[in-house]
Design a protein around this nucleic acid. Structure first.
Length: 958
RNA sequence: GGGCAGGUAGCUCAGCUGGGAGAGCAUCGCCCUUACAAGGCGAGGGUCGGGGGUUCGAACCCCUCCCUGCCCACCA
């Protein structure tokens, strides 16, 4: 063996990873080959100004493994990369920066200058995430990188908007929408999160007029509300039509206190008789349910709030069709003007109290709607917005999943998809932001709307006079509107490009369950509307949606900045000092008061900071934890374990190189004489190849990584490398034997590298480069080598059985050694009793293996008729008795205890089997094979028991 | 209120269409054996959330309850 290999003693990932990625990218290996069947994955575009978190690392590792796997299998593989402009999120970041650095708001700059700032920020920070993606080893096609606001996407977005509008599927109207008073924009239903909060239920008296009385003679009715301030906009009180208490009052009026407006009492099924008082104040302009009630009863809409959710000086009054209502008074008492919602609430409650109209206040838990970005309480507000009429788009999208054209993995997410899609509401797509795709619509001074690509096109399309003044809509589109076009927009649509024809529809979408509605569903709808196959049928954007779980911290908590438990994937790759980690976790916090606790928990958990583990270890950990659909509780110990695994593979390669470099590994052919171990490991490799491929095809990356791990560590390293030593170090070995073992060592290692490459791209490439020529392979990179496939012809079941026999004996002897406290250095002799002809034959051909692996002075069969020595320790391998000679090492008590333990275990098993086999029902009803199996087991157990019992009594007599 | 997922060793999780439970880490021994101490060899540890049912046989199928997490929904 030569020790002059160039490999370091431990695996040092950092430099290797950097240089290989650079090499791959420069050589353009990530680009589709242009040959073979196409395979496409579209990356979920991360926020352009964002940075990589564990969720990205997880999903991208999976996409990379799939892409590398298919690429190696010869598919024309495209992993499309790109980033998202992320409207609200990006705009907020830049606004915050602007406020912090220049104490300016976006309004101080004005729209054009602000947008320019965002572009600057995008240029400046936009490559953070792409740089991080390179560190992960992602084999994305960088040459065709896209951005959701690049020129091509701009065209696609306009085209989609205009066509949907012209097809009657986009409309504009004054509607009640979810309004974020902090961000000053409408948001969609999906961007509203409801949280359970403690509030009150206020009971207000509304005086009846025209002499009306309740059944018990009161001249007022009592309404219950959680939002007193909206009473300024009440336009009715509703009761249930079946409610005997109030039936007679339907059609009567109350006079709204504070405001003095006469409003009707109406009957509506919406009202629950059991809740509150059974009387509900109706405020159609500030509550979604009330809006619907208002529609049914032709009530006017009175908006009492500004876009800041402050009380207006004059209410805006509208009819249901959005026209201005001039008959209802718009007066709001002066003392409320300009108050925010919550101050107004207090003041109104106080006023009711003063008037004697406050019946009572009950504590009440309610669901408060909050904006997912701002955290602000959302206010239903009447505004002019653009909507997509979604039902016609949803129908084919539902059918595609029903028919199995699109499959979710795991399947249970289909239910989630269906339940949302079947009850889908029109999609509000306009946002009152500046950063995004501006809506391609123009208005004249009379409020007429013209939709088109440009002012010029609009003028000609609608045949407008040249002097008609037009101005473009100020709003931008919901970010998800453009990302919904991702699968085809990135491929050149609306042009019918070659890329579009080759790579669409795509194969699999890998994403988190949290954006199934936001993105996946909308992508399916949009794609199916715009993309058609040759027969004109709608095309699905992808065949499979692989839904990943969330990565949580070791306690199952969601990782978040405020909890201070965020782990940066790059820190696990490159390592980070405690000091830097603390800075990262406590610096720039929105709630600085949390810093102390975060500091403490971080110090406890990472007293030394985080060590560098390398990309491959990180990736392998992610794969091993990726059982479908489950959230992952991150475990640093697992990461360490897989770092060790990388090192194991590295050292196995070192061993192989030490023993093969400069030697004949049959690169040029030649006769070979394969050892049992050679034939065994090649057979095991076939099984592993099948297991790994099957697991990848079914998206079970945990099973794939486990099969690979077990093969490499427990079979190749633990047994095969050890078994190769007696051959390689045997002075009497023939050239054919040496060649056979070296050949097998190298070839199996080379296959392992290819098999593992999709999971651990860097270490496999590095080692592969060194074994390539020894393994007789051509090619510049492992990336483009064929993926190993199981060949049943290479499976030698007889060799597998025989090697299992060898392992059985070796393990039996090791166990005796350990339990009898025999020094590892002591060479012992072993006898095999009760040996069959086959045992004897196997012993003959595996003598040197056994001697070396069990560290024996000698091993032989006990000749028939001769008596075994008295002082032996016994173990059974099937019917074969393994006897370790203890004459010089006697510890009678230990052996008696050991035998007793064996007997106890066997007795239990015997009882169990006996019970089963004396049960007539079992004998008569269980399948014959099962009965036979159990009978054989019992025979074996009884046999073993007898032998141990004999041995025990012998020992006791000594 | 409706729906989904999960509860298996101290921890994190596997367990394919029912035939007495596995891995990694942790723990406990023994070893610096010439690829690897980021290692080697061996050992201990589980009433598979509770209860009931189907079955010769249940971690797995059915019913029921308990706990955890998530999604959806208008109770003012």
């Amino acid at each position: 063996m030569s020790l002059d290999t160039t490999m370091e003693k431990t695996y040092q990932p950092h430099e290797i990873e950097r240089s290989w990625y650079k090499n791959w990218e420069e050589k353009n290996y990530f680009a589709p080959s242009g040959k073979g069947t196409s395979y496409t994955i579209m990356i979920p575009p991360p926020n352009v100004t964002g940075s990589l978190h564990m969720g990205h690392a997880f999903q991208q590792s999976i996409m990379d493994a799939l892409t590398r796997y298919r690429r190696m299998q010869g598919y024309n593989s495209l992993w499309q990369v790109g980033t998202d402009h992320a409207g609200i999120a990006t705009q907020m970041v830049v606004e915050r920066k602007l406020a912090a650095e220049e104490s300016k708001s976006r309004h101080d700059l004005g729209r054009d200058a602000f947008i320019e700032k965002v572009w600057e920020w995008k240029e400046q920070s936009g490559n953070t995430i792409t740089r991080q993606m390179r560190r992960l080893g992602n084999s994305v096609d960088w040459e065709t990188e896209r951005f959701t606001m690049d020129e091509g996407f701009y065209n696609a977005v306009q085209e989609v908007f205009i066509r949907l509008h012209d097809d009657g599927l986009i409309y504009r109207g004054k509607r009640l929408v979810n309004w974020d008073p902090k961000l000053h924009t409408a948001i969609s239903d999906l961007e509203v999160e409801s949280t359970e909060e403690q509030g009150s239920l206020w009971h207000f008296r509304y005086p009846l007029v025209d002499g009306a009385k309740t059944l018990d003679g009161s001249d007022f009715i009592v309404v219950a509300t959680t939002r007193p301030e909206t009473m300024l906009g009440d336009t009715a009180v509703a009761v249930n039509p079946k409610d005997e208490r109030y039936q007679h009052l339907v059609g009567q009026y109350v006079e709204l206190p504070v405001v003095g407006r006469r409003i009707p009492i109406v009957a509506d099924d919406y009202v629950d008789r059991e809740f509150g008082t059974g009387c509900v104040k109706i405020t159609p302009a500030h509550d979604f349910n009330d809006y619907d009630v208002g529609k049914r009863h032709q009530l006017p809409l009175i908006n009492v709030m500004t876009i800041n959710a402050n009380i207006r000086e004059h209410a805006e009054v509208f009819n249901l069709d959005g026209t201005v209502n001039t008959t209802v008074t718009n007066v709001i008492p002066e003392q409320y003007h300009g108050l925010d919602r919550f101050s107004a609430r207090k003041k109104i409650v106080k006023e009711f109290d003063n008037l004697g109209f406050l019946e009572k206040i009950e504590p009440h838990t309610l669901k408060t709607p909050r904006g997912d970005r701002s955290g602000e309480v959302i206010e239903p507000l009447l505004t002019d917005q653009w909507f997509v009429k979604i039902k016609p788009l949803a129908e084919p999208a539902i059918k595609a999943v029903e028919d199995g054209d699109i499959q979710f993995v795991p399947k249970q997410y289909e239910n989630m998809y269906f339940s949302w899609m079947r009850d889908i509401q029109d999609w509000c797509i306009s946002r009152q932001l500046w950063w995004g795709h501006r809506i391609p619509a123009w208005y004249d001074n009379n409020g007429n709307v013209y939709v088109g690509r440009s002012e010029e096109e609009v003028r000609s399309k609608y045949k407008l006079a040249a002097d008609l003044a037009l101005s473009q809509d100020n709003d931008v589109l919901d970010t998800w509107f453009s990302s919904a076009l991702w699968t085809f927009g990135t491929l050149g649509w609306p042009e019918n490009t070659a890329r579009l024809q080759t790579f669409h529809p795509t194969d699999v979408l890998v994403t988190g369950f949290d954006i199934i509605f936001f993105w996946v569903a909308r992508m399916i709808m949009m794609t199916m509307y715009f993309m058609k196959d040759e027969q004109g049928n709608p095309q699905a954007p992808f065949k499979t949606v692989y839904v990943t779980g969330l990565i949580r911290d070791e306690n199952g908590q969601k990782m978040s900045k405020t909890k201070g438990n965020v782990l940066d994937p790059l820190d696990m790759i490159d390592g980070i000092s405690l000091k830097d980690l603390l800075n990262k976790r406590t610096g720039n916090m929105m709630q600085p008061q949390l810093a102390a606790r975060i500091k403490q928990s971080t110090q406890t958990q990472f007293p030394e900071g985080i060590a560098a583990h390398g990309t491959d270890a990180l990736r392998y950990t992610l794969f091993s934890l990726a059982s479908t659909g489950r959230d992952i509780n991150w475990d640093m110990k697992r990461l360490e374990g897989y770092r060790n695994f990388c090192n194991k593979l590295w050292n196995a390669a070192r061993y192989v190189l030490m023993n093969t470099e400069g030697q004949d590994c049959r690169q040029n052919g030649g006769e070979v004489d394969y050892s049992l171990a050679d034939r065994w490991i090649v057979s095991k490799l076939q099984h592993t190849e099948k297991a790994v491929c099957d697991a990848i095809e079914s998206y079970r990356f945990d099973l794939a990584s486990q099969a690979l791990y077990e093969f490499i560590w427990n079979e190749y390293c633990d047994w095969y490398l050890e078994l190769s030593k007696p051959v390689l170090w045997d002075e009497n070995a023939t050239e054919e034997q040496l060649r056979g073992t070296r050949y097998t060592l190298v070839r199996v290692l080379e296959a392992i590298l290819r098999l593992a490459h999709p999971f651990m791209p860097f270490i496999t490439e590095e080692i592969w480069q060194q074994v390539r020529s020894l393994a007789g392979k051509e090619g510049d990179t492992i990336m483009l080598q064929p993926y190993p496939a199981c060949d049943p012809n290479n499976i030698d079941e007889a060799a597998v059985a025989e090697l299992e026999w060898v392992k059985g004996i070796v393990v039996a002897i090791r166990t005796i050694r350990s339990e009898m406290n025999i020094k590892p250095s002591a060479e012992i002799s072993v006898l095999l009793n009760n040996a069959t002809e086959l045992d004897t034959k196997r012993l003959g051909s595996n003598y040197t293996f056994l001697k070396r692996l069990a560290k024996l002075a000698d091993i032989q069969t006990l000749p028939t008729g001769s008596k075994a020595p008295d002082m032996v320790a016994t173990k059974l391998v099937g019917d074969l008795e393994v006897l370790v000679n203890m004459t010089d090492l006697v510890d009678k008590t230990a052996e008696i205890a050991r035998l007793q333990k064996e007997i106890d275990k066997l007795s239990k098993e015997q009882t169990r089997l006996n019970n089963k086999l004396t049960n007539d029902n079992f004998i008569s009803k269980a399948p014959a094979v099962v009965v036979e199996k159990e009978q054989n087991k019992l025979k074996e157990v009884e046999n073993a028991l007898q032998k141990f019992a004999e041995q025990l009594s012998k020992m006791q007599q000594l």
